[in-house]
Computed example of a mutant assay.
Amino acid sequence: MSLAADTREAARARPFVLDALRAGVLNHSAAAAWLADEADLGDGNGDADTDAIATALRRFREELPDYGTAERAASVSMRSGVGVVDDDGGDVDGSDADPLLRVGGAAVTPAGRDTAILATGAVDAAALAAVLRRLAVADVVVEAAGVAGETLVVVVGRRDGATAVRVAEAALAAVPTDGE
């Protein structure tokens, strides 16, 4: 592959670089130096033409759609007293209640010390990704998360519940779009 193609591939493999390119806020020279090292875009001897990489980034930016966000119409609520438990597909917590979320061998049940944040409405994987990214920035540890149909579930520690609701509402108000 050419250096330009390698640079595009390296940017695509690092979504934050792609987002910064699309938003027009990337320092091309600094990003070129970082990518040369991080993605090994040099000649294999530690030498990289960072000017050529920066130029490839500028040209790639011209091909990308502008960064944009869209609000998702969703109702966000909090449910206390949930837990993540092993699930064999049967009665997971001794009650008749259905799990809020089931993934592989685990389930989020209405019995525990954690808090579930539920968003119902226009949610999808992109909305879940936006919520998870913002929760990470807010230093909120996520115990479980998933989305199916029109429901998004994120489980956090009890003390982080109120913060997680605010973060989820803000994230759903500005979910990044793919620009198409």
Score class of each variant (00 low, 15 high):
P65Y: 05
T115I: 05
D93L: 03
A73D: 10
T69D: 09
F60S: 11
P65I: 13
R61K: 14
R72P: 08
S95W: 08
T115E: 06
A97G: 01
L135C: 08
D49T: 09
L100I: 07
L64Y: 08
G105K: 12
A116M: 10
E63A: 09
D91H: 10
D86N: 01
A107N: 06
P99Y: 02
A56S: 14
A126P: 08
V76M: 00
T115P: 11
T50R: 05
D114Y: 14
G89Y: 11
E62C: 02
V123S: 03
L128H: 00
G90H: 11
A116K: 03
A70W: 01
A70L: 13
T69W: 07
D51K: 14
D86V: 07
T69L: 08
A127K: 01
L100P: 04
R133I: 06
G94W: 10
V82N: 05
L64D: 11
D86L: 11
P110K: 05
A70G: 15
T120R: 14
G112W: 03
A125R: 14
R79A: 06
A97N: 13
F60T: 09
T50F: 07
I117V: 15
L132K: 05
R113L: 15
E63W: 01
G121H: 10
A52Y: 07
A126R: 14
I53A: 05
L64H: 06
V92T: 06
I117T: 07
R59G: 13
A129C: 00
G104I: 12
D93M: 02
E71L: 13
L100Y: 12
G121P: 07
G68N: 04
G46Q: 06
G68D: 03
V108P: 04
R134N: 12
D93K: 07
V108I: 02
D86M: 02
T50A: 05
L64V: 02
G83F: 10
T69V: 15
R58N: 13
A119P: 01
L128G: 02
S80N: 01
V82H: 05
R58V: 14
T55W: 13
A52Q: 09
S75G: 03
A74H: 11
T115C: 04
A125M: 08
G121M: 08
R59H: 05
R58M: 12
D124G: 07
G68T: 11
F60Y: 15
D87H: 13
T120M: 00
D98H: 14
D47E: 14
D93S: 09
Y67H: 09
G83D: 13
S95D: 03
A54N: 08
A52W: 03
G46C: 09
L101Y: 06
A127V: 05
D87E: 04
T109V: 15
R59Q: 07
G104M: 13
A129G: 09
T109K: 02
S75C: 01
P65V: 14
R58I: 15
S77I: 04
A111N: 13
R133D: 11
L118G: 04
L118Q: 09
G112M: 04
L57P: 06
T50E: 12
V123A: 08
D66P: 08
V84E: 09
D88A: 13
R59P: 00
R58W: 03
I53F: 03
G81M: 10
R133L: 07
R61H: 12
E62T: 12
A97M: 06
D96Q: 10
L132Y: 02
S75R: 13
